[in-house]
């Protein structure tokens, strides 16, 4: 803001100097041009080379005006313009340096970000790899557990089937035995005569043990 204010002040000073010099230049020759134009036109008609040779009456005021203008510009305009340009150069230089610094900073940040991105990519890849390994391990565990459970279930089912089979066989055997005994008992009880029963008693008596033994 301060710099902008100085910059504007310099420009105003230079404009004032230029306006002064212009007024100086215009003030003197304006009147001369009116009279001298007619004279020059008459001379040119007489001597064409006269157009190339400066008229001292015009030249000297112009030179003085020029010199005055030069002095004014040298005293007032040039330092202001130079200071302004220097300031401008410095400003541009600072801006360029800042831009350069910003560029360096941005490059550094870019590199840093690239490194971070690369690191993040590596970490992501590592995470994915770890996740794959973990998933594979879990899958293997689940498979093993499922295998064990299925094996246990099969074994249990086979044991149950075997047990059921044995129970069924035992039940069948018991039923057959009961039926056989019932049939045998009915046959013995109904079909034997008293004499046959006595024969059986006699037979059993022969085989029966003693009271001492029992």
């Amino acid at each position: 803001m301060k710099r902008t204010f100085g910059h504007k002040a310099g420009i105003a000073g230079a404009s004032a100097a230029l306006a002064a010099s212009a007024l100086t230049m215009l003030a003197s020759p304006v009147l001369a041009f009116a009279s001298e134009a007619t004279e020059a036109a008459a001379e040119s008609e007489e001597n064409p080379l006269a157009l190339l040779i400066p008229n001292p009456g015009e030249f000297i005021p112009m030179l003085v005006g020029f010199i005055v203008l030069w002095i004014i510009l040298a005293k007032v305009g040039w330092p202001t313009i130079t200071a302004m340009l220097d300031k401008r150069v410095n400003t541009i230089k600072d801006s360029l340096e800042q831009a350069e610094a910003a560029k360096v900073e941005s490059e550094r940040l870019l590199a840093e970000h690239k490194a971070q991105l690369e690191d993040a990519k590596k970490q992501a890849a590592q995470i994915i790899a770890d996740a794959k390994v973990s998933a594979e391990s879990i899958r293997a565990q689940i498979q093993a557990k499922a295998q064990d459970e299925s094996s246990a279930m099969i074994a249990k089912a086979q044991a149950a089937i075997q047990s059921e089979k044995k129970a069924a066989i035992a039940e069948l055997q018991s039923s057959v035995a009961d039926l056989s005994v019932a049939v045998a008992g009915r046959v013995v009880g109904q079909d034997l005569s008293d004499a046959q029963h006595r024969k059986i008693v006699e037979h059993y008596l022969a085989e029966a043990g003693s009271f001492d033994v029992n």
């Binding site: 013995v188 059986i200 008693v201 008596l205 043990g209 009271f211 029992n214």
Partner: peptide, 13 residues
Amino acid sequence: LGGIILSTHGRRI
């Protein structure tokens, strides 16, 4: 049903 059962003094055939 048949046969014989003998018992005396708590002993049994």
